[in-house]
């Protein structure tokens, strides 16, 4: 099985290049995921750098660009991919080394939407109650693992990475706007108004296309817009 992997070490390389690797057929097990293949390649060349952790699509560490589309190495079966399998870092982010990118900007936007419950009432004696129906409204929102596949495949995020929140952060913003226990709807909506933070989204829907958890940030963004219209009238 043939691989072409993006290599770049800013300390020694003048510019990035693609390096060819090959794994013998007996090294490929049925149902083998790309992450396992990368680990085998790493045993051939220890200098190859990439992030990974749980290997089950839960930690969100191993977002990479696979044959032109973002995805998680641990959830992508190598047998489903056209050869040579081209592996690159997720686009639009500064490369630290090889497949490892600097996610600071991404997490800055995540923090920017205040991804926690804001309650102005005095704290209840026991716990914050929520009806099962209200809890259901969080389905499709809370499952995000913050891998960044969506935001780094979004052209609006590429053009304005410092100002546009990006699909991942906006999905998280709606996760708290939709929460019956949250009391900061006004502040959250006000914060997202203006030309950049949310309204750079042009419903290109690359985010929906690549989300490894099959979530729909575009729908969440539309729901935020609906809340804004409701808030206006």
């Amino acid at each position: 099985m043939k691989f072409l992997i993006y290599r770049y070490d800013p300390e020694s390389d003048k510019k990035p290049f693609m390096q060819a690797f090959e794994l013998a057929d007996d090294e490929i097990q049925p149902g083998m995921m790309l992450r396992d293949a990368l680990l085998k390649i790493k045993s051939q060349d220890e200098t190859l750098a990439f992030r990974h952790s749980c290997g089950e699509g839960v930690c969100g560490s191993d977002a990479i660009n696979i044959n032109g589309a973002n995805g998680l190495g641990c959830l992508t079966a190598v047998s489903s991919l056209k050869q040579p399998i081209e592996v690159r870092p997720v686009p639009g982010m500064p490369v630290i080394r090889d497949l490892v990118v600097d996610m600071s900007q991404f997490f800055k936007h995540y923090r920017g939407v205040k991804p926690w419950l804001i309650v102005h009432d005095s704290e209840p004696e026991v716990e914050y109650l929520q009806s099962p129906e209200d809890r259901d409204k969080l389905d499709g929102l809370y499952e995000c693992i913050l891998c960044g596949c969506c935001s780094t495949s979004c052209p609006s995020f590429w053009w304005n990475p410092d100002k546009f929140r990006g699909p991942a952060a906006l999905l998280q913003s709606y996760r708290f706007l939709a929460d019956s226990r949250d009391q900061a709807t006004e502040e959250r909506l006000e914060d997202l108004d203006g030309p950049y933070r949310m309204f750079r989204c042009h419903t290109i829907m690359n985010c929906v296309n690549v989300c490894p958890k099959s979530l729909n940030p575009t729908a969440a963004i539309n729901n935020i817009k609906k809340l804004m219209v409701k808030d206006m009238v």
């Binding site: 108004d193 949310m198 219209v229």
Partner: peptide, 8 residues
């Protein structure tokens, strides 16, 4: 006119 107003 920007953000919400422009979009609307």
């Amino acid at each position: 006119a920007q953000g919400m107003r422009a979009w609307l």
